[in-house]
Amino acid sequence: MRTKVKDIMTAEVVTVGEDTAFKEVAGTLLSNRVSAVPVVDRDAHVVGIVSEADLMRKEEFQDEYKQPWKVRLRHRLSPEGAHPAGKAEALTAADLMTAPVRTVGPEAPVAAAARQMDEFGVKRLVVTAADGSLCGVVSRADLLKVFVRSDAELVEEVRHDVLGRYLWVDTSDVRVSAEQGVVTLGGAIGRHSDAEIAARLTRRVDGVVDVVNELEWQQDDLRTRHARTA
């Protein structure tokens, strides 16, 4: 039911090596029309990432670095590498990159990637295998893909997975429809609790915006359960 990172990530990713020169990194970003590139070592393991913002440090602090006393003051007031001005002196990708890089596994659910991006305030995550090798990159734009699924896709998944696999009850009288991502469950089902479970599982389907639960039931087992515990 849950879309995985590998389903929406960009798998063909341009990379640079640790020794790649500043100008070559800039050219790689421009020629490939990307805003960031992973940095890999000789064994193709991801060791960092360089973004447009990292490259812009050189221009941002260019005038300041013409005055050596300001440079010395910055290094005295800030730990080594803690201030972005330090990247203005960068000559290679290893000097420019942000490390360690935020990563996610290809089998992770999209929701986990979204939470990680929000927690760390990043626009993208590098997707890596267990050994640290590069699998792809997933961006905020990629995460939006789950919300542009067609209504027909959502209906099919609810029918096949929610009703056909996860509910071990008769769902032959349940109707499913969708409009603009809002799924409506209608018809009849055996128990009140099954109707609630069906609605809850439907909400978990990636791309579902909301659920309208119009299911009717023959047995109100929830009321009976509450009466017994009262």
Rank of each mutant, 00 (worst) to 15 (best):
E89N: 14
A199K: 03
H192D: 02
S150T: 15
R165E: 11
D19A: 03
M56V: 09
T20M: 07
T224A: 15
A141L: 02
F22A: 06
Q67V: 11
C135V: 08
V155I: 05
L201D: 12
A88P: 02
E12N: 10
A141Q: 13
A111G: 03
V34I: 15
T128N: 04
T92F: 08
H83G: 13
V14T: 03
D63H: 02
N32G: 06
A129T: 14
A44W: 05
A198Y: 07
E119D: 12
N213I: 08
L167M: 06
Q180E: 14
G186Q: 07
R165G: 09
T103N: 12
L185R: 12
R200E: 04
G136C: 05
G187N: 10
V13N: 13
G164Q: 07
K58F: 03
V155K: 04
M97G: 05
E12C: 11
I189R: 11
G181W: 00
G207H: 06
M1S: 15
G81L: 12
V211A: 05
A94R: 13
K23F: 07
A178Q: 09
V209T: 09
M1I: 15
S31F: 09
L167A: 13
Q219P: 13
L185Y: 01
D7W: 09
V183H: 02
G121C: 14
K123H: 10
F61Y: 15
W217N: 06
D43V: 01
H45R: 09
G105L: 00
V148L: 09
G132Q: 03
K70M: 06
L30Q: 12
E18V: 12
K66N: 15
L91N: 01
I189S: 13
V13I: 05
S177M: 00
G186S: 08
A53M: 00
A198V: 11
T103K: 11
K23R: 07
A90N: 00
R124E: 01
R102A: 04
E24K: 14
V182W: 02
Q218I: 06
D151R: 10
T20A: 08
L96F: 01
I49E: 10
G48Y: 03
